[in-house]
């Protein structure tokens, strides 16, 4: 219940209507959106029960390794109702053609593979919010100071998922495990996304805001 309440509203991409469509424009829009989503997601993390009790250093470490997984999971969940399209924002939906134009076709196809998995499972909002919190708590940072505290956060969230499934999805006793088993693909997709945006950063043609840059550098 606390995670459902903590779930942030979607934000808008607001691509500049005066600039003609191009790869640079699309990537600028995505990077700007990601930067603003990150601010929202840091606020969200503070509402995960137990997260604010971690040391500030450990909170930072988890976000530095897990931020892209959180961004991607949010895009995935927003895209469940559509076919072969990614809802980066309510006003910024990418189809195959737009993905090609922006040079993110491979990346978006991997994200669509996740969408397909969750669609097949008919993931609900409760499962999505817990899975997102689990992906943060389980982001495998190598810099954790208090490993036991992070483990107990993982246990609490894992327990919440199991309790929910045993109450709501009695038809499939393995459903919690099935959801957890989608996390490797999320990890792989996030790594690919970070790599892609790091190379865009190196090209230097797309303006990026400071928080996005800071977190890209943390993962580089």
């Amino acid at each position: 219940s606390l995670l459902l309440v903590a779930e942030p509203e979607s934000i808008f991409a607001m691509p500049d209507p005066t600039v003609p469509d191009s790869d640079i424009k699309a990537l600028t829009t995505l990077c700007d959106l990601a930067d603003r989503e990150l601010v929202v997601n840091i606020g969200w993390a503070k509402h995960i029960p137990g997260f604010p009790l971690l040391s500030l250093a450990d909170q930072m470490s988890l976000l530095q390794s897990g931020w892209m997984e959180i961004l991607i999971l949010r895009v995935v969940f927003r895209s469940l109702a559509l076919e072969d399209k990614l809802v980066y924002a309510e006003d910024y939906i990418m189809d195959e053609e737009q993905s090609k134009l922006a040079g993110v076709l491979d990346l978006n196809n991997t994200i669509l593979q996740l969408v397909k998995k969750y669609k097949a499972m008919r993931i609900d909002k409760e499962e999505f919010v817990v899975l997102k919190a689990i992906s943060l708590a389980n982001s495998d940072s190598m810099q954790i100071e208090d490993v036991d505290a992070v483990q107990s956060l993982q246990d609490v969230l894992h327990g919440a998922l199991q309790d929910y499934e045993s109450a709501q999805h009695t038809e499939d006793p393995r459903r919690a495990g099935k959801l957890i088993m989608t996390l490797p693909l999320l990890r792989q997709t996030a790594a690919r996304a970070v790599q892609h945006f790091c190379s865009i950063k190196q090209d230097g043609r797309v303006p990026m805001h400071k928080l996005f840059l800071e977190l890209l550098e943390a993962r580089a």
Binding site: V39, I42, L56, L63, K210, L211, E214, A218
Partner: peptide, 15 residues
């Protein structure tokens, strides 16, 4: 950690 000033600041803000 000094490199991650914005993240640090956002986590410290009590929102």
């Amino acid at each position: 950690k000094e490199k991650h000033k914005i993240l640090h600041r956002l986590l410290q803000n009590s929102t």
